[in-house]
């Protein structure tokens, strides 16, 4: 049926692949939003707003903040991997709901 729809005849759409792309996108997106929020809190002074432009110090702070979050992310990622960080061990409350399928597999 999809052969006759849209501008890409003959191409199958795998919802699963799109879902995975979405998850990857979400990961990047939440990282970005988190950086945006964190560096705003850390670098932009809340008292007065005498100037609409970023001050020298604020610019400098933002650049370092973004670089540091990025690097911290990688450091923590590496550390956590050595500890066997994973959903099975650290989000146990999920197991209750997945048990039926899981126990059959094992």
């Amino acid at each position: 049926m999809s052969m006759f729809m849209g501008s890409f005849p003959g191409q199958e759409v795998s919802q699963e692949k799109i879902d995975i792309a979405e998850i990857q996108f979400n990961a990047m997106n939440s990282t970005f939003n988190n950086i945006l929020k964190t560096c705003l809190e850390k670098c932009i002074s809340r008292d007065g707003y005498g100037e609409g432009d970023l001050a020298k110090g604020e610019m400098c702070c933002i650049d370092r903040c973004v670089a540091k979050i990025h690097y911290s992310n990688r450091v923590i990622g590496g550390f956590v991997q050595t500890k066997g960080f994973g959903p099975e061990t650290y989000l146990r409350h999920y197991n209750k709901f997945q048990d039926t399928g899981e126990s059959q597999k094992k």
């Binding site: 970005f32 950086i35 945006l36 560096c39 705003l40 670098c43 932009i44 707003y49 005498g50 100037e51 609409g52 432009d53 970023l54 604020e58 610019m59 933002i62 650049d63 973004v66 670089a67």
Partner: peptide, 16 residues
């Protein structure tokens, strides 16, 4: 001023 600063902050973080 605050809005201007907020926008510039977002822009810069995006770039970096």
């Amino acid at each position: 001023k605050c809005s201007e600063k907020f926008l510039k902050h977002s822009e810069r973080v995006g770039q970096r």
